[in-house]
């Protein structure tokens, strides 16, 4: 579903160049729930922003469903973001002036899809993620977990090839965090959604099928969820400890 090949990205500040992603290659299969972890400065958020095409990369390929989406003209990129990519941000990025239901409808409103089906789908997603009771409320009136579940529902509206989530549990308490992870898992199980999530939260990552661990812009290791979630989390914590310090990241 997502194929990243030899991706490079360097930030330049004045005359100094800081390579952040170094010849990075990996693959995410359809229906897979993949997390990216790593210590501060490892390039997690930069990787996500490059895949989203929010920032340009220096060279390499980003293939979405077999097609290279890097360097596309603005109009085509808009279409891909709307139809084939779904976004979930750490600070939710909901429009405060729209209700929960309207926020969820937005991707299909932009795509000018038929209204009846759109509303039906939005209601279904609300039910699926347990936010049907707050459907008519505005973002300011609901909890953080509900906001993020709204964002997940919105991301799924156009059945994208992949959901790109940037620290989706970063601003949430543990209960809300579990609710959001459940939302991703339900999307994966019931809609066969593919999720690519940047996180520093080992607990959240322990629910994933696979975790890509970055260090200094390269893949340090890849861990696959084989046994119990608890065992996978211990394995993750061991790797992170080995890398030194926590994996807090805001690059």
């Amino acid at each position: 579903m997502l194929n990243v090949r030899h991706l490079n990205k360097t930030y330049t500040v004045g005359s100094n160049a800081y390579p952040v992603l170094k010849d990075l290659s990996f693959h995410v299969r359809k229906g897979e729930f993949v997390a990216v972890m790593g210590p501060s400065g490892s390039g997690k958020t930069t990787l996500l922003n490059c895949i989203s095409c929010f920032i340009p990369h220096d060279n390499g390929e980003i293939l979405l469903n077999g097609k290279d989406i890097s360097g596309l003209p603005e109009q085509k990129m808009s279409k891909i973001r709307n139809r084939h990519l779904g976004f979930v941000f750490q600070d939710f990025m909901l429009l405060d002036g729209l209700s929960v239901f309207e926020n969820i409808c937005l991707p299909q409103v932009i795509a000018k899809r038929p209204i009846v089906q759109m509303e039906e789908k939005a209601r279904r997603l609300c039910r699926l993620f347990g936010i049907e009771k707050v459907m008519e409320k505005y973002p300011a009136e609901i909890s953080g977990g509900e906001k993020q579940r709204t964002a997940v529902a919105r991301a799924l509206m156009n059945q994208p090839y992949i959901i790109l989530a940037d620290e989706p549990t970063g601003n949430l308490d543990s209960r809300s965090c579990k609710a959001v992870i459940d939302a991703f898992l339900r999307a994966k199980e019931e809609m066969n959604a593919t999720v690519f999530m940047v996180t520093h939260d080992s607990y959240a990552a322990s629910f994933c099928d696979r975790v890509v661990v970055l260090k200094d812009g390269v893949i340090h290791t890849e861990l696959t969820h084989k046994e119990s979630r608890r065992a996978f989390m211990d394995e993750l914590l061991d790797v992170l400890r080995e890398l030194g310090g926590d994996s807090d990241d805001d690059e």
């Binding site: 808009s78 891909i80 973001r81 709307n82 990519l85």
Partner: peptide, 15 residues
């Protein structure tokens, strides 16, 4: 800007 940023991220064309 925030509103427009969200629209762009959701695929609304700049045009």
């Amino acid at each position: 800007s925030r509103e427009y940023g969200i629209f762009l991220a959701l695929g609304e064309p700049k045009k």
